[in-house]
Deep mutational scan, measured.
Amino acid sequence: MAAGGDHGSPDSYRSPLASRYASPEMCFVFSDRYKFRTWRQLWLWLAEAEQTLGLPITDEQIQEMKSNLENIDFKMAAEEEKRLRHDVMAHVHTFGHCCPKAAGIIHLGATSCYVGDNTDLIILRNALDLLLPKLARVISRLADFAKERASLPTLGFTHFQPAQLTTVGKRCCLWIQDLCMDLQNLKRVRDDLRFRGVKGTTGTQASFLQLFEGDDHKVEQLDKMVTEKAGFKRAFIITGQTYTRKVDIEVLSVLASLGASVHKICTDIRLLANLKEMEEPFEKQQIGSSAMPYKRNPMRSERCCSLARHLMTLVMDPLQTASVQWFERTLDDSANRRICLAEAFLTADTILNTLQNISEGLVVYPKVIERRIRQELPFMATENIIMAMVKAGGSRQDCHEKIRVLSQQAASVVKQEGGDNDLIERIQVDAYFSPIHSQLDHLLDPSSFTGRASQQVQRFLEEEVYPLLKPYESVMKVKAELCL
């Protein structure tokens, strides 16, 4: 049975990233139509530049190519590739079939990587351009969430054990800070992308030097003109047959890092959902379990974690691919890159769409948070109580021993009897502590235990987050809708 299948058929496997999760716009960027249309555009740009620099290419040939950029006979191309065992030459023939007058000058002087690699770089750039505003929107939604809850005390956790208090907004800023680093890295790697350009079979530009009869300047002009037509500021000066596969490492490393950030955020949300302090959106008709109707599973956060793990592992592909590119190139890269580049971007696209949807509907339960604080705060307040007693004339050592005994009794009630923490009640009825009984409410005010959390939130948002989001103001209103 021949390899390949009808990918629109229910009898043929289709990647869930495309069929179930990723956005239509990201799927289109990695589609065959987008790819092969870009090949034709690159052939047109090459012909236009070659004509401008004096090669015998007519206006009629150029116009014929322009008129057929979208006229792609995919069936013919597939048949040609089956016959020739070469995808680029299959599309040269297919393009030439609908451009008979231009057929002889299509791909003039070029090698397969002229269309293959340059198209990949265009796709990487455009895919990054799709991700950047999506990530900015996630940051914006979380920034709104953090600002609104900047002063809401909550129990902090280290080692997932109760620690000092923080605020809900401050905790959210930990998430935002990681995503801001990801946004900066995505922008950097996007701006650092260079075009492969017009380089020939081993990167020496020998074929173009021959076409222009040894004119170095025209060869350099050709490279520059096509690079500018493709919208790049610069091209690699040095290439082998391909652009260095280190570029793929750079791009997928940034995406993998984004995956790590999203995994951490969504894990926190899942843990908070278990504590009943916070939940992701839950639709009115949504079913959490087929057997347990009360369940409210954090399905979206779980999906993000599941896909983020996949995204983090994909960076190993370009690392290994770059390491086995012998001399000017081997074909070890080809099949692998067809999979890992598309999957990385479709996965990143999915987790950003999902995280935006989550961040637009996060639900906080202040009463649950308050109750958990009441359970733990008495123990945390013991040092403040000791200091207040010393100020009232008591002995630190005597007070410490009193607190120690009462704390152990209260802990026994919590752990052995399943009761509430009654340390404060014990202190309130103990005559030894009568000098500070009137101060206990103040000493137990949760806001006095959150330090500068709310001020940190305000400063972080104003100095770091809002300036970073400013270039994306025009796209901030787009909502994230999930079908599944």
Rank of each mutant, 00 (worst) to 15 (best):
Glu60Cys: 14
Ala348Asp: 02
Lys101Ala: 02
Gln63Ser: 04
Gln51Phe: 07
Pro435Cys: 15
Ala392Tyr: 01
Leu209Cys: 03
Gln455Leu: 03
Ala3Leu: 11
Lys391Val: 15
Phe379Arg: 11
Asn353Val: 05
Ile269Val: 01
Trp39Ser: 05
Leu461Gly: 10
Thr58His: 13
Phe36Arg: 07
Phe95Glu: 12
Asp248Pro: 00
Phe460Val: 13
Val138Asp: 10
Glu80Lys: 01
Ser151His: 10
Arg374Ser: 14
Lys479Gly: 11
Ile403Thr: 04
Gly451Trp: 03
Pro24Glu: 14
Ala392Asn: 15
Pro378Phe: 09
Leu84Gly: 07
His263Glu: 09
Ala22Thr: 14
Gly197Tyr: 01
Cys113Met: 01
Val414Tyr: 02
Gln41Ser: 12
Lys229Thr: 07
Pro467Thr: 01
Val189Leu: 07
Gln409Arg: 03
Gln241Asp: 03
Ala77Met: 14
Arg300Met: 00
Arg452Asn: 06
Phe327Cys: 06
Cys180Val: 04
Arg270Thr: 15
Cys399Pro: 09
Lys101Phe: 11
Gln286Ser: 10
Met476Glu: 13
His263Trp: 14
Ile105His: 05
Ser448Arg: 08
Phe208Arg: 08
Leu443Ser: 00
Met299Thr: 12
Asp192Val: 00
Lys147Ala: 08
Asp332Val: 05
Thr38Tyr: 15
Tyr243Met: 10
Val413Arg: 00
Met299Gln: 10
Val88Gly: 06
Glu228Ala: 11
His97Gln: 05
Ile237His: 13
Tyr294Lys: 05
Ala102Val: 04
Leu307Gln: 09
Arg270Gly: 02
Phe208Trp: 00
Arg37Tyr: 14
Gly419Arg: 01
Asn353Asp: 13
Arg149Ser: 03
Val189Arg: 12
Gly5Phe: 08
Leu53Ser: 10
Asp223Arg: 14
Ala344Ser: 13
His442Met: 04
Ala322Gln: 12
Glu60Tyr: 14
Asp144Gly: 11
Lys170Val: 05
Thr242Lys: 04
Thr38Val: 05
Val88Phe: 06
Gln164Ala: 09
Gly200Ile: 00
Ala344Leu: 14
Phe30Asp: 09
Tyr34Glu: 05
Arg296Ser: 10
Gly418Gln: 15
Pro100Ile: 12
Cys483Asp: 14
Ser359Arg: 15
Ser290Val: 09
Arg303Trp: 10
Ala230Leu: 01
Phe195Gln: 00
Gln61Ile: 00
Gln205Trp: 07
Glu25Asp: 13
Gln221Arg: 08
Asn384Glu: 05
Glu425Gly: 11
Gln439Cys: 15
Ile139Phe: 11
Arg33Pro: 05
Leu142Gln: 15
Gln286His: 06
Gln456Gly: 06
Arg374Cys: 03
Ser257Met: 05
Phe74Tyr: 07
His159Ser: 02
Gln51Pro: 03
Ala260Leu: 02
Cys483Glu: 02
Thr313Phe: 03
Ala77Arg: 04
Arg37Thr: 11
Glu343Ile: 01
Met278Gly: 04
Met380Ala: 11
Pro24Trp: 08
Gln325Leu: 06
Val364Trp: 11
Asp11Ser: 07
Asn353Lys: 11
Met26Glu: 11
Ala410Ser: 14
Leu331Gly: 04
Arg137Met: 10
Asp333Gly: 14
Thr158Val: 03
Cys98Pro: 01
Ile339Val: 01
Glu360Phe: 02
Lys224Met: 08
Gln177Ile: 06
Ile123Phe: 11
Gly5Asp: 09
Gly418Arg: 10
Thr350Arg: 09
Leu17Gln: 00
Phe449Glu: 07
His107Gln: 04
Thr450Tyr: 01
Thr242Arg: 03
Lys147Gly: 02
His310Gly: 06
Val198Tyr: 15
Ser261His: 08
Glu79Lys: 15
Gln439Ala: 12
Glu60Val: 08
Gly214Glu: 13
Glu462Tyr: 08
Ile436Cys: 11
Asn421Asp: 11
Ala77Gly: 11
Gln184Tyr: 11
Ile386Arg: 08
Gln439Asn: 10
Ser261Phe: 08
Leu165Glu: 01
Val168Arg: 09
Leu131Asn: 01
Arg20Ala: 14
Ser257Ile: 08
Arg33Lys: 04
Met299Leu: 03
His97Phe: 03
Cys483Met: 14
His159Thr: 02
Gly240Phe: 03
Leu484Cys: 01
Val88Arg: 10
Cys173Trp: 09
Lys35Trp: 10
Leu211Val: 04
Gln286Cys: 14
Leu444Arg: 11
Thr52His: 10
Ala480Val: 04
Gln285Glu: 08
Thr330Asn: 01
Leu272Lys: 10
Thr354Cys: 04
Gly393Trp: 06
Asp120Val: 06
Ala90Tyr: 13
Gln221Met: 15
Pro318Thr: 12
Leu258Thr: 08
Glu370Leu: 07
Cys483Val: 11
Arg396Tyr: 10
Arg426Gly: 12
Glu50Tyr: 02
Arg171Asp: 02
Ala143Gly: 11
Phe36His: 13
Val324Arg: 03
Ala77Cys: 00
Trp45Phe: 09
Arg337Cys: 05
Cys399Tyr: 01
Asp398Glu: 14
Ile249Leu: 12
Lys101Glu: 02
Gln285Ala: 14
Pro467Arg: 11
His93Leu: 08
Gly240Leu: 13
Ala22Arg: 10
Arg329Pro: 06
Phe460Leu: 09
Val138Ala: 10
Leu484Tyr: 08
Pro366His: 07
Leu444Met: 15
Gly4Ser: 10
Asp73Trp: 07
Ser257Tyr: 09
Thr227Val: 14
Ser253Arg: 11
Thr204Leu: 04
Arg171Phe: 10
Phe449Ala: 05
Thr201Cys: 13
Asn297Met: 15
Leu255Cys: 11
Ala163Trp: 03
His159Trp: 00
Leu130Asn: 15
Trp175Met: 02
Thr94Met: 00
Leu84Pro: 00
Leu121Glu: 02
Phe195Cys: 09
Leu258Asn: 11
Lys101His: 01
Glu250Gln: 05
Ser257Pro: 15
Met292Lys: 07
Arg300Asp: 01
Met312His: 02
His437Asp: 01
Lys82Leu: 08
Ile57Asn: 05
Ala291Tyr: 11
Asp6Gly: 10
Val363Gly: 14
Ile385Val: 05
Ala342Leu: 03
Asp178Pro: 00
Val189Thr: 05
Ala47Lys: 12
Leu135Pro: 07
Leu311Cys: 08
Leu314Ser: 06
Gly259Val: 00
Pro281Leu: 09
Ile369Glu: 12
Phe95Cys: 03
Glu462Val: 15
Asp332Trp: 15
Gln416Ala: 14
Phe28Ala: 10
Lys199Cys: 10
Met299Ser: 13
Lys479His: 09
Asp215Ile: 11
Pro24Ser: 15
